Simulated assay, not measured.
Amino acid sequence: MLAENYELIEGIAFNLGIVALFALIGFAIHDVLKRNDVPMVGRIVVYGVLGLGAMGFVAKGIIQIIWQTSGVSG
């Protein structure tokens, strides 16, 4: 494998790892909320916070792509 492909593979593996991590966190939170009979308002708040965290990672990725295509290093 070529050395220049390592960064691409690392980026893809990182993004897939983050997706898997958010899925596992979501399953764990769903199980805890279901077992403790949490009201609907509490569930909405918890899933909303988890969703905002996931959207933060998506926004970071989009901003990073825009910066890299415009020539800003980082």
Rank of each mutant, 00 (worst) to 15 (best):
G17S: 02
G56W: 02
I12H: 01
M40A: 15
A23P: 08
F27R: 00
V49K: 01
T69S: 06
G51Q: 03
L33C: 04
V49I: 12
Q64K: 13
V45N: 00
F14I: 06
I66E: 09
A28G: 01
G48D: 02
R35C: 13
F57R: 11
W67K: 14
F22E: 06
V58Q: 07
T69Y: 07
Y6M: 12
G26D: 12
R35G: 00
H30G: 03
L24I: 08
L2H: 13
S70I: 06
V49M: 02
Y47F: 04
H30C: 06
A13C: 02
G11K: 10
L16H: 06
V38N: 07
I12A: 07
G61M: 07
N15V: 14
I63D: 03
G56F: 15
G74W: 00
L2W: 15
L2Q: 14
H30P: 08
F57T: 09
R43C: 06
N5W: 04
A3Q: 07
P39M: 00
V32Y: 14
I25G: 08
A3G: 07
G51D: 07
E7Y: 05
H30M: 06
G71P: 00
V46S: 08
A59K: 09
S70V: 11
A54H: 08
M40V: 14
W67Q: 09
I18G: 03
I62C: 09
T69K: 01
G11V: 09
L16W: 10
R43H: 02
G42R: 11
R43Y: 04
D31N: 08
G61E: 00
F27E: 03
G17W: 00
D31E: 10
Y6P: 07
I63C: 05
A20E: 03
L50R: 04
K34W: 00
L24E: 13
I18L: 15
D37K: 03
R35Q: 05
N36P: 03
A23S: 15
R43S: 08
F57S: 12
R43Q: 12
G42P: 12
G53K: 01
F14C: 01
I63A: 01
G74C: 00
L8S: 00
L24S: 14
L50H: 12
I63L: 10
V58A: 09
V32E: 10
G51E: 04
F22H: 12
V45D: 02
A54L: 13
V72E: 09
A13L: 04
V45G: 02
L8G: 08
I25F: 04
Q68L: 05
L52W: 09
G71C: 06
N36K: 13
L33G: 02
G61R: 15
R43F: 02
V32C: 13
L2G: 01
V72G: 10
V32W: 14
V41R: 15
I25N: 03
V49F: 02
G48A: 01
W67L: 05
E10P: 00
Y6T: 09
Y47L: 02
L24F: 11
F27V: 03
G56E: 09
M1W: 05
D37Y: 04
F57I: 14
G48K: 01
